[in-house]
Structures are given as structure tokens and as C-alpha cells.
Amino acid sequence: MTGGRARAWLELVRGPAALTVPGDAVAGAAAGRAPARNTALAMGSSLCLYWAGMALNDWADRAEDARDRPHRPLPSGRIAPAAAFGAAAGLTAAGLALAAAGTRRQLATAGALAATVWAYDLKLKHTAAGPAAMGAARGLDLLLGAAGADRPAPAALPPAVLIAAHTAAVTHVSRHEVAGGSRAAPLAALATTAGVAAAVARPGPDAATARGCAASYLLTAAPALARAAHRPTGPHTRAGVVGGLQALVPLQAALAARAGAGAAAPVLLTLLGTARRLSRKVSVT
């Protein structure tokens, strides 16, 4: 594969944004006390399903992108629509296969996640249910990590709700990233971010690490969202979406710390730095 074609595929699956995915499995596994093998399978499964969703998203939006984002791989002709759809189907199958190698609950959760991803891309994205569907997908992604435990882990439900709430708020902002114009969406996302940070910073296991990660979460998401609320132009709104997406990593680290896996926090925060550097070269939206 040539360098130009490799870059096109990296753009299609939003390569840097994929670094926000493994932390879901880590946070879920910490809450569920899942064994390392099943956590690794959950990471692989969720990465495959994330890439599948990105490829399917651009396949479904190819006509819209030809008008608003002609530089993307499909409208620019660098990747054929059939190849993108085939990649989405193949990656979905791979994600389900990896989950099936774990536990039955992991397979069931991955199946629900895959169904949510396909429903969002093909039907729900441009409806009022779109942000909630995207939030549900992220929540299920965290639960996929918890599903690797030997027993059900109800402790994973609260962090899944927090991840889902943040994601839904940022997704609502993303609806205005082309033309801008909305102050309400970034303001609502700011309020959600503050509420999520407060919930994560409550007393619990490894509270000091959790509070530090919660502060990093706020510092990653809030400034760009505040600028988007102050000046809701397309570029400022896109920057708010990027900040909100990258903020998932310190949020995952905080949730893992609250579940007693504070040692995972430095590793996850390293992913944040890498994602920031790569996002300067390849768009995450």
C-alpha cells in the first residue's frame, strides 16, 4: 500500500481518534475486575467496531461530504465507496469475533454495540436521537470491558452513564462543526463536562489520582468548548469537538482510578499526548 493510500485509510477511520477507544475497556474492566486477557479482547473488539463505524459513517455521508467536505477520502476519490463499505462490514465481523473469544456477555455487548453503531450511521445520525445513540455506543463500549468479568458488574453502570453523557453532549456540538452558529450546544456541553467532572472527583478509591485526571479532563474539554460558545464559528466549533473527543482519555483515566486501577492512569494520559500530536496531521472529525 502506497503512502498516499495508507494516509487515505488513516483519514477514513480517524486514526488519532482511535486512541480514545482503549480507555473505555480499561475503565470498564477496572469496574468489573475483568481478567487481562478478556480486557485485551475487549480493546481489540472496540477498536475494530470504532473503525467500522468511521468507515460506515463516511460511506453513508458520501453525498453530503461531496458538498461540505470534498477533501475526505471518498468524495476526493482516494477510496472507493464499495471499499469503505466492505471495510466497515469486515471490521464489524472482526470486532464480533474478538468479543466471541472472550465471554458470552462480551459477545452480547459487542453485538449491541455493533447494532447501535450501524443504526446511528445509517439511520439515526441526522435525527433528534443521534446524540443519544452515539452516547449509548460509548457507554456500551465501556460495558464491553466490564463484560469480561466472571460475574456481572453493576459497578460499571455509573461510569458508562458518565461516558455516555459526555459523548452525547459533544456529539450535539458536532452537528454544527461545518457552519457553526450554535451557542447553546457548546454551553450545554460545558455544563455536562462540569457535572461529569464533579461526579468523578467524589471520594473513592485512589481519589487523588481520580481528582487529578478529572482536572485534566476539564482542562482538555472546557477551553475549546468555551471558545465555541463565545464565537460559534465552524472552526471554533470543530475545535470544541476535538477537545471534547480528546477529553475522553483523562475521563477514562479518572474512572479507572475511581475503580481502583489508578496505575492505568499514566498510560492512558500518554495516549492523550499522542492523540494530540497525531491530530495535527490527520483530522479526528
Rank of each mutant, 00 (worst) to 15 (best):
A136R: 13
L12C: 02
P250F: 09
A184Q: 15
W118K: 03
A55Q: 02
D61R: 00
L272C: 07
R72G: 09
G32C: 09
G3A: 14
A259Q: 06
G102W: 01
P75W: 11
M134A: 06
V284P: 11
G4W: 02
A17W: 01
T237C: 15
G86W: 07
L157H: 07
G86A: 09
A256V: 10
L190I: 15
R175Q: 14
L74Q: 12
A27V: 09
A114Q: 04
L187Y: 10
P158W: 08
L251Q: 12
A153I: 11
R280Y: 00
H236D: 15
K125S: 02
A226K: 08
L41A: 10
A239E: 15
D65S: 14
M134W: 14
L12M: 03
L96D: 04
A8E: 05
A97M: 08
R33A: 15
T233A: 03
P235K: 15
K125M: 04
A221C: 11
A198Y: 05
P81V: 02
T209N: 04
G234S: 14
A99I: 05
R105M: 10
R62H: 01
H71P: 12
S182W: 07
G212C: 13
R104H: 11
A17Y: 00
L157K: 07
A168E: 12
A31M: 09
H176R: 09
G243H: 03
L190C: 15
T171S: 14
G148W: 00
A110E: 02
A210E: 06
G15I: 04
L278I: 08
A52W: 02
A165C: 08
L219W: 02
V267E: 05
R33L: 15
L271I: 04
P70R: 13
P131E: 13
G145Q: 07
P203Y: 06
A224F: 05
A253S: 03
L49K: 10
V21G: 05
T274Y: 04
R276Q: 12
R280I: 00
T209Q: 13
G77N: 14
L225I: 11
S216L: 15
T20Q: 01
D24N: 14
A101S: 11
W118I: 10
G28T: 08
R5K: 08
T192K: 05
A164T: 07
A27Q: 01
V242S: 04
R37V: 13
P205L: 15
T274Q: 08
P35E: 04
